[in-house]
Design a binder for these strands. Structure first.
Lengths: 221, 221
DNA sequence: TCACTAATGTACGAACCAGTACGTTAGCTA
DNA sequence: TAGCTAACGTACTGGTTCGTACATTAGTGA
């Protein structure tokens, strides 16, 4: 997250709406990701900020709206990263593998985001439903997948009947699960899915899986 | 869940420790799955039971231990279902597909369990870590996977270097994600992963994916 | 049938926590 | 430089919520 850090001489009351707002969002992101929506404490967020609880209500209106704002910014970061995707110069197989790997990397690098999404799912995605910003936000990654799929299917490399949203779900599920279920999986099977030494292994496994699926001759559907 | 339902004539105070305990567990499972750990209300659980809050503390000690007990029972149900797995009479390819489909079905049929696991992950799997019962509980499904893999690799049908735990993670991730991320995925991509009309499609997709991965010639590792 | 204990109910307390009433000040602009 | 307002701080409240002290009764074994 874009952390805002300035020395701030003590005793002096500096006014900076943008900085205060951003700092609240930073801390709130951590707190919500740490403890879940109901577990998060507004007082705790305020305490870890250079401002007071009053400001949270001044800028965001309430805990619920604060969580929505946190989600909006977190999704914004993801979407922005997805727009950097540039795999059009690669052949379809290499392009899909690259896309899968970037998704893999991104999930690994943003565990807080994964936790926020898990939390939002526990609450039935009600904050997304109530946010205009999140409703309108498309998914650049989907467009990329669509282009690669079309190209791969046209050249006969890929099986014809694969849908972009489905493929996105397949790639996401593997990347998401690895981060979201790290703790229970580790506790039950004694294996840390985020172990650094296993990183390359799982990254290749994802790519192999997706390519195998896309290039295999399909049984009757 | 094994629901306990008996008429219970009003005004009469019937003593049945086992029934009271089981009823608390049933309701607590629903409440925790509905609202998360911190969102769940002990008073609400008590209210929806034929007994009182006092009994929750009498039998379980506290909210934390109650959640652990809920988790223990939920995992117990899963493990028991896994022990019914009987695919040894099938050839490796059919056996793996059958196993994947059973996992798929089971996740679909137990959304509360999925939610509980998501919640437990938000809290770092601390309840699993603190439970002797859950630590000792193995995974029959893993043994089945091991047997099928060995057989498939021996006959040369499957690629040699696939690990049972990894394959379990792959199958689980797809099945788990479909249920756990249903709401955010639906809100963002306008597609309900649990749509009845799409069920067969996703079920086949999972099987195809796993088989394709296991039978594809692997790139240099 | 009597006494004992496991099981149950009632009523309450103390801490916590989201949200707000009210007062203050920095910094801009006319 | 006077005055205005956006930005900020303090102190409090009202309701909620986990947990418990204390009282009671059903069923069982001697």
């Amino acid at each position: 997250m874009t952390s805002v850090e300035e020395p701030a001489r003590p005793g002096e009351r500096i006014r900076d709406a943008a900085r205060t707002r951003a700092e609240i969002l930073d801390v709130a992101t951590q707190e919500f990701a740490r403890a879940g929506y109901d577990g998060a404490r507004v007082d705790e967020i305020a305490a870890r900020t250079r401002t007071t609880k009053r400001m949270i209500y001044y800028y965001f209106g309430g805990k619920e709206q604060l969580f929505t704002a946190v989600l909006e910014r977190a999704y914004g970061v993801i979407r922005q990263a997805e727009q950097q995707l540039d795999v059009d110069h690669l052949d379809p197989v290499a392009a899909i593998r690259r896309l899968a790997e970037l998704t893999f990397d991104h999930h690994e690098q943003h565990p807080d985001f994964i936790r926020l999404v898990s939390i939002e799912n526990i609450h039935g995605a009600q904050h997304i439903a109530g946010s205009e910003k999140l409703g309108k936000m498309g998914s650049p990654a989907l467009d990329v997948i669509r282009r690669i799929l079309a190209s791969g299917q046209e050249s006969g490399l890929f099986t014809a009947d694969v849908d972009a949203v489905d493929l996105h779900a397949m790639i996401s599920s593997f990347c998401f699960f690895r981060v979201s279920n790290r703790h229970t999986f580790g506790a039950l099977f004694g294996r840390d899915l985020l172990d650094r030494g296993q990183r390359a292994h799982y990254r290749a496994m994802l790519g192999d899986m997706v390519i195998a699926y896309l290039t295999a001759e399909r049984t009757a559907d």
